[in-house]
């Protein structure tokens, strides 16, 4: 693949991400950050690939540790974000009992 593909992918995603992220209000900045934690666990894909092609036990263990760490990020990040967002939803539900769930 050409350098253009990779650079375009990186900067394109960053630019689109920035415009969308900009619209998130300060109210939700903490859940936004923990959600970003979950997304930075995307390195789990590289770790999974590494575990598949490890040639020695040592490599397999290191790759496994990376899988576990990244999985903790993904699961923990999404779960704690959900917990926080539910708190905001609760107060919303109280104000508007008929709000669609």
């Amino acid at each position: 693949m050409s350098a253009l593909f990779w650079l375009g992918l990186f900067f394109g995603a960053a630019a689109i991400g920035y415009t969308v992220l900009r619209a998130v209000p300060p109210l939700l900045h903490t859940p936004l950050m923990s959600g970003m934690n979950a997304l930075s666990g995307i390195t789990i894909l590289a770790a999974l690939a590494a575990i598949g092609i490890a040639r020695t036990t040592g490599e397999a263990h290191w790759a496994g540790a990376a899988v576990a760490l990244a999985a903790a990020n993904v699961v923990g990040g999404f779960a704690v974000t959900h917990r926080m967002l539910r708190m905001f939803r609760r107060s919303l539900d109280r104000e508007n009992p008929s709000w669609p769930r």
Binding site: M1, F5, W6, L9, F10, F11, G12, A13, A14, A15, G17, Y18, L21, R22, L32, M33, M36, L39, S40, G41, I42, T43, L45, A46, A49, A50
Partner: peptide, 29 residues
Amino acid sequence: GVAAAVAGYALANPVPVAVGALVGAGGLM
């Protein structure tokens, strides 16, 4: 996020590159 993106490039995987860039943009904002 940037660390995930460059690690993704090193392993020729486009997904961490895109998602890592998203995280990097959010953190910088």
